Computed example of a mutant assay.
Amino acid sequence: MRKFRGVVPSLALLLALLSAVAGCGVSAEEDDDTLTVLAAASLTESFREIGDRFATANPEVDLRFNFQGSSMLAEQIRQGGAGDVFASANTGMMDKVREAGAVAHGPDTFATNRLTVVTPPDDPAGIDSFADLARPGASAVVCAPQVPCGSAAEGVERNSGVRLRPVSEEDDVKDVLHKVTSGEADAGLVYVTDAVAAGDEVRRVDVPDADQVTNEYPIATLDGGGHQRLAQRFTDFVRGEEGREVLRRHGFGTP
């Protein structure tokens, strides 16, 4: 019987070579191109468009978004929640994440935003100014004080001397907007960008004092996410020319 003496040694050599290659190690970042971005609810529309453009330029990256109120996201990160990038609707929430030691690089301010009043298109309550929100019989909705849009609302109240008595306080600005578009409230205090996103679903009433209470939006890569190279590529894209163009078109100011 013919014997294939070379087969076993060759197989052993092949296995050894494969083992050596595996032993060299492929980092999680090189092996897994999934990038998780935690972003304020008010960034939903703009970041989805930025994400599409980023994906076109980086087809190998699987980009996933988690849009919630900044305070909720900050708490998730502080409790060890997974994520590679955090984009907050104000510096206060980012400071909490940074103080917890969760920031790897940044933060850098990439956008600004301010508040405006929105009503249903037919404006049944006749809301023509911020002061009208405090009028007896008018049902107004705002963000809760502990979230960025709620903190900004308190600033507008202080500057204008108008004290609101909202019928509800919501955890993020999208919930405020929904109360208005669904007809559950006569008016709501939301970001300009949310009014832009809602389009014909709402009527907008500018708030002069809102210019004095501008929210700065910082973005940072997170420590422990395992994809810092990709995370930095995304934050650079957001802060770059293409990202700024998208943000401006959605109503954000850019620093």
Rank of each mutant, 00 (worst) to 15 (best):
D128G: 15
Q212K: 10
P124T: 02
D223I: 06
G251H: 09
V205G: 03
D108Y: 08
A187T: 01
A111G: 07
G69Y: 07
V37K: 01
G161S: 09
P166C: 12
K179N: 12
E30H: 09
P136T: 00
A134D: 07
V85P: 00
A198W: 07
D171A: 10
S27K: 11
P59Y: 07
A16M: 14
P208F: 11
P120H: 02
G137P: 07
P121I: 14
V192C: 01
R244S: 08
R233K: 14
V7Y: 02
N159D: 13
S160K: 04
S88M: 02
G225V: 01
D172E: 10
F47D: 06
G225M: 00
R48G: 06
G83P: 14
M72T: 13
E99F: 09
E242R: 06
I219K: 04
R48N: 15
G150L: 05
H227A: 15
T44H: 14
L73D: 00
V167K: 12
L73R: 03
L222D: 07
P145S: 00
D95N: 11
A40I: 03
L73V: 00
D194L: 12
E169R: 11
L230Q: 15
D132F: 02
G225I: 00
T181L: 06
E241Y: 05
F110K: 05
V173G: 06
R2G: 08
V118R: 05
A187P: 02
P120E: 04
Q228L: 14
L133R: 05
F54L: 09
A138H: 06
L164A: 11
E245L: 03
D123N: 15
V37G: 01
K179E: 15
A74R: 15
D62H: 10
P218V: 12
S27Q: 11
D209P: 09
V103E: 02
D52W: 03
V180I: 08
A152D: 14
E154Y: 06
G23C: 05
V213M: 02
F237E: 05
D209V: 11
A20H: 00
F130M: 05
E45Y: 14
A220D: 02
V85C: 03
P9Y: 05
V142S: 04
I77V: 04
L43C: 06
Q232S: 13
G80W: 04
V205Q: 06
D175S: 13
H105Y: 10
G23R: 04
D206N: 09
V162P: 03
G51I: 01
V238T: 10
S70N: 03
G106T: 02
D95M: 14
A41D: 12
T112S: 13
F86A: 02
N159W: 06
L63Y: 13
D132G: 01
G23W: 14
V141K: 13
